[in-house]
C-alpha cells in the first residue's frame, strides 16, 4: 500500500521544514505533476519518498520505517542469506563466473585468459525479482503470501514476470519466508545495496562460496529461463511482423 498523503506531508515537513514543493521536486528529480497527482489521490509512491530521502542525504530505509505500516523496517536489519545474495547476481555475471572457474589458473580446462573476472554489476538485474523469490521459496511461499496479503496468486506471478513487486508485497513475502526485508527491496530496485547496509563484496563472497556444481546448476537454471523468455519474445516478434506484413 502506498504511503498516505497526510502522513507523507507531515514527514516532509519534518525532514525539510523550509523547502517548498518546487524545491523538493527540483532536488529529487521528481516531476511536479507526478507529485501533485500522488498528493491529490492521497497515495504517495514509496519511490517518491526514496528519491526525496536520497536528495536530502537521509537513509531511505530509515525514513520508510518512520511510516506506520513500514515500521518493521526500523528494526536492525537482518542480513540477506547467501542464497538471496546470489540471486542478485546478474545471469551474465553468473555465466562469467562459470567461465572464469574453468580457467587453468583454477585447475580448470578452459582458455587461459578466461580467469579475468569483472566486478559484479549492481542489483537489480533483468530477472532479479523472480530470482529473489525463487531463492527464498520453500514451495509454499506464494500460497502463504497470497493468503496473508489477499493478492491472487496469478497477479503475484504477473508482477514477478514483469520483474517488479510492490514494496508492500516485498515486505509480506519476506515476512512469510522469514528472511530480512532488504533482499526484496534491493531486488525490486527500491533501494541500493549500499542503502540496504549490505557489506561491499557480499554478493561476490556468496558467489565464491558456491561449489562448482552448485554454480553450474544455478547457471543452467538461469540460462533455461532466459532461453524461454527469449523464445517467447521472438515468437511475439514474429507474430507482430506477420500483422505488419499482411495488414500494415
Amino acid at each position: 500500500m502506498p504511503l498516505p498523503a497526510k502522513a507523507f506531508q507531515l514527514w516532509l515537513h519534518r525532514v525539510a521544514p523550509s523547502a517548498s514543493t518546487a524545491d523538493i521536486c527540483r532536488i529529487s528529480g521528481i516531476k511536479r505533476t507526478t507529485l501533485a497527482q500522488q498528493l491529490v489521490r492521497g497515495k504517495v509512491a514509496e519511490t517518491t519518498l526514496v528519491s526525496i530521502s536520497r536528495a536530502l542525504d537521509l537513509s531511505p530505509l530509515t525514513e520508510l520505517a518512520s511510516f506506520d505500516h513500514y515500521a518493521e523496517l526500523g528494526a536492525p536489519p537482518q542480513p540477506p542469506t547467501p542464497a538471496e545474495l546470489v540471486s542478485q547476481v546478474a545471469t551474465m555475471d553468473l555465466l562469467r563466473a562459470v567461465i572464469s572457474r574453468s580457467s587453468p589458473a583454477y585447475g580448470g580446462y578452459g582458455d587461459s585468459d578466461s580467469a579475468s573476472m569483472r566486478a559484479l554489476s549492481p542489483a537489480p538485474h533483468a530477472t532479479s525479482v523472480r530470482n529473489w523469490v525463487d531463492a527464498i521459496d520453500d514451495g509454499e511461499l506464494r500460497h502463504r503470501v497470497s493468503a496473508a496479503s489477499g493478492v491472487a496468486p496469478q497477479n503475484y506471478s504477473a508482477q514477478l514476470t514483469a520483474n517488479r513487486l510492490s514494496p508492500e508485497l516485498v515486505v509480506a513475502t519476506a515476512r512469510a519466508a522469514g528472511v530480512g526485508f532488504t533482499g526484496g527491496l534491493v531486488a525490486t530496485g527500491l533501494i541500493t545495496e549500499d542503502e540496504a547496509g549490505w557489506v561491499p563484496g557480499a554478493k561476490q563472497s556468496a558467489l565464491d562460496a558456491l561449489s562448482d556444481g552448485e554454480l553450474a546448476a544455478l547457471a543452467g537454471e538461469r540460462l533455461q529461463a532466459l532461453g524461454k523468455s527469449l523464445r517467447r519474445h521472438e515468437h511475439e516478434q514474429a507474430q507482430t511482423e506477420k500483422i505488419w506484413e499482411n495488414l500494415g
Binding site: Q239, K242, I243, E245, N246, L247
Partner: peptide
C-alpha cells in the same frame, strides 16, 4: 484472408 493470415 489478410486478417486471418496477419493474425496468424
Amino acid at each position: 484472408y489478410r486478417i486471418a493470415k496477419g493474425f496468424d
